[in-house]
């Protein structure tokens, strides 16, 4: 039994069976992380480079920890302070690193499709750690694991993704994954932050009233307002966004059922999510982070067997 793809470029390329294998394997790695010695020797002959062309805290630490827990050798690369500033191209940089005998590349890049481009030109296994506004597959997988842990399964679950859908790779990966696993998906937020044809493209619900979205869903995945990716004014102010679309305690108290609150981080407290909601018992934000290491261990472990087939 193995994954149908050689790389993890996006959830788009995975089959439901692949997703199940990754989540099942991640569950076993969670057990490993509870042991006195939280390390297994599975990848001790594998070298992994973490290529981060864009800022990251959680994902980079999580990947690095996952690699170390699997006994892989790791190299970290960040574009600032490297020869990228001297004008070296992506392909040249990676080829130079690969000639030092690296087996796997974990990569984050601000350009959508950068890992796909690399996968066509280099022999190493590539794991996408977020590319522009396209996909962030490991985030969707860890979100799925977190939902599955709390609710038992994904099938038939109602999940609302709330916030900046337009600029969010987390949203796109989550939509792909949830649809593949049989969940019902709704996206909610201001009309300016929701792509026009998303409803038809994915067969999902679209809602502009957060209150209605919360009343419908069992899980609310609240996304960050990505100010760094916005080059035009899509809403008038953060204060106004919070008043109209922010998740507040008052909103949640008005519901007749409890909604699980998720957020991929980093949180803009008081913008998309109020502090008392983020820190409350129904928020599983820190569980998501914990699951992140296990999911990334599973992905790296399952893909590591693929590198010899090149």
């Amino acid at each position: 039994m193995q994954l149908s793809t050689k790389h993890l470029l996006g959830i788009r390329d995975l089959s439901p069976q692949d997703i199940r294998i990754i989540l099942d394997t991640a569950t076993q790695f969670k057990e490993v992380l509870q042991r006195p010695i939280k390390k297994v020797p599975s990848l001790r002959d594998v070298t992994i480079v973490n290529l981060f062309y864009e800022n990251s805290t959680r994902t980079r630490i999580s990947f690095e920890l996952a690699e170390k827990r699997l006994s892989a050798d790791t190299i970290n690369f960040t574009s600032s302070g490297s020869s990228v500033s001297k004008g070296e191209t992506l392909l040249d940089t990676v080829n130079n690193i690969l000639s030092m005998k690296v087996d796997m590349v974990v990569m984050r890049h601000s350009a959508s499709g950068a890992p796909h481009f690399l996968s066509r030109h280099i022999p190493a296994v590539i794991v996408n750690a977020g590319d522009g506004i396209n996909e962030h597959p490991t985030q969707a997988l860890l979100d799925a694991l977190s939902i599955q842990e709390k609710l038992g399964s994904l099938e038939g679950r109602r999940v609302a993704i709330i916030g900046d859908i337009m600029h969010s790779r987390v949203a796109l990966s989550n939509i792909h994954l949830l649809k593949k696993m049989g969940a019902e998906v709704m996206v909610a937020g201001p009309p300016t932050l929701i792509p026009k044809h998303i409803k038809a493209a994915f067969d999902i619900k679209v809602e502009h009233d957060v209150k209605k979205a919360l009343a419908w869903c069992e899980v609310a995945n609240v996304l960050r307002i990505q100010l760094e990716r916005q080059n035009q004014v899509l809403f008038s102010s953060l204060r106004e966004y919070n008043l109209a679309y922010g998740i507040t305690r008052k909103l949640l108290d008005g519901l007749d059922h409890e909604v699980l609150i998720m957020h991929p981080g980093p949180i803009n407290r008081g913008v998309e999510l109020d502090s008392d909601v983020a820190d409350s018992g129904q928020s599983i934000i820190l569980d998501q982070v914990e699951n992140g290491v296990a999911v990334r261990m599973a992905v790296l472990y399952l893909l590591s067997g693929k590198r010899d087939n090149t």
Binding site: I21, V40, S42, D45, L70, L302, G305
Partner: peptide, 21 residues
């Protein structure tokens, strides 16, 4: 006890782990 992650043949054949309890 599941031993999948400790096998010395994981490069040859991929094994899906079972539960350790």
């Amino acid at each position: 006890l599941d031993i999948t992650f400790y096998r010395d043949d994981i490069r040859r054949q991929l094994h899906v782990p079972s539960e350790t309890h």
